[in-house]
Design a protein around this nucleic acid. Structure first.
Lengths: 184, 184
DNA sequence: CGACGCATGTAATAGGTTACATGATTGA
DNA sequence: TCAATCATGTAACCTATTACATGCGTCG
């Protein structure tokens, strides 16, 4: 998937590795972003596959920049991926069930005592609240920077889904407080 | 994470490999479940770490079952993980942005023509609708089987989040139809 | 003088998927 | 007889994360 995210970023304009890291894969929160260990080897691989082309820009008194641009083959590959629906089936493999640590823990919440369980849920509520605040700030900034409404719309999904999570956490907390936690 | 899901399943009762696959990691949809290539090596690894213990049950005219039960060390390890909050920070690394193929494609939707984009969104709407129907069926079955309300609650998050997705898809479709798709 | 931003990369490891490999029983 | 279900496992591969490694310029 990262392959297509890189190609997608290069569809607009040519970029060098560090630019990809710092602009196209900007940190949105704490540790979001792309890691070097994946970026540089993948760029090399894409270059070898002739999907992107490298142009080294020498700079005086600074490390050279390796500017990558997408090739015709790269554009074709990207469009093919974009048009396909591969990976869009409902599978749940990458969904709340398995990839969301908090939810996986929730499945076993009866093994905790009520106080610990409550504290855990409240902590998650805090995290979600902070995330929503951050996303709303990001949204405001995107609006003022006149980012395309489609991109803003995508961010709004993030906000909506976190709000849904917050609502559910409220319900779940009530459910936990009602439940009978017999020590196991 | 799978490690703790296996230990969590064994907290309740001892199970053999195939049981873990077919009951604890039941398919909920098309291809949800656990794959052999991960299950069996991991069981072996956990056994070597003395977190679980194997007991081979010979069966006449059928392959032997390797029944695993959790050890005291396994229970301790599991509880420690359960109480910790590791991986529950907001990171978005495992969130809608990067792991959801449909959403990643949405970021580049302006590279598609309006018809293709519309078709793609409608297809996703269908998928989501089918998923919601399946989850609701699962919920009904859980209620009749008198599964604990906490477990049902977790499934309800799945329903809620898919409903949020459906709502957003509606909004996004409108946005796409309003937008100016100049071919790129 | 130390931290941070710019700029590139490698190595080791972990986690997960697909495909391969085997073999018995049961039901259509 | 063919397919599905039960039952266990290995090998190859791909993806992703962490940590390591280097070096310059600038700002406080």
């Amino acid at each position: 998937m990262l392959k297509y995210m890189l190609l997608g970023a290069l569809m607009e304009r040519s970029l060098h590795g560090y630019q990809l890291k710092s602009t196209a894969f900007q940190k949105m929160f704490a540790d979001f972003g792309i890691n070097d260990g994946q970026l540089y080897p993948l760029l090399k691989k894409l270059e070898q596959a002739d999907l992107i082309r490298k142009n080294v820009e020498h700079q005086e008194g600074a490390p050279s920049r390796h500017v990558y641009s997408i090739t015709a083959a790269g554009r074709k590959d990207f469009r093919q991926w974009l048009e396909s629906s591969e990976g869009e089936e409902r599978s749940f493999r990458y969904d709340f069930f398995r990839k969301d640590t908090f939810f996986v823990r929730c499945n076993y919440i009866q093994y905790l005592d009520k106080e610990t369980a409550t504290a855990k849920i409240r902590q998650q509520m805090d995290t979600v609240a902070k995330t929503i605040a951050d996303l709303q700030k990001a949204r405001a900034s995107m609006i003022s920077r006149k980012v395309s409404p489609l991109r803003i719309s995508i961010l709004e999904y993030g906000i909506k889904s976190q709000e849904t999570r917050a609502e559910w956490l409220n319900d779940f907390l009530k459910e936990v407080q009602k439940a009978d936690f017999t020590p196991v």
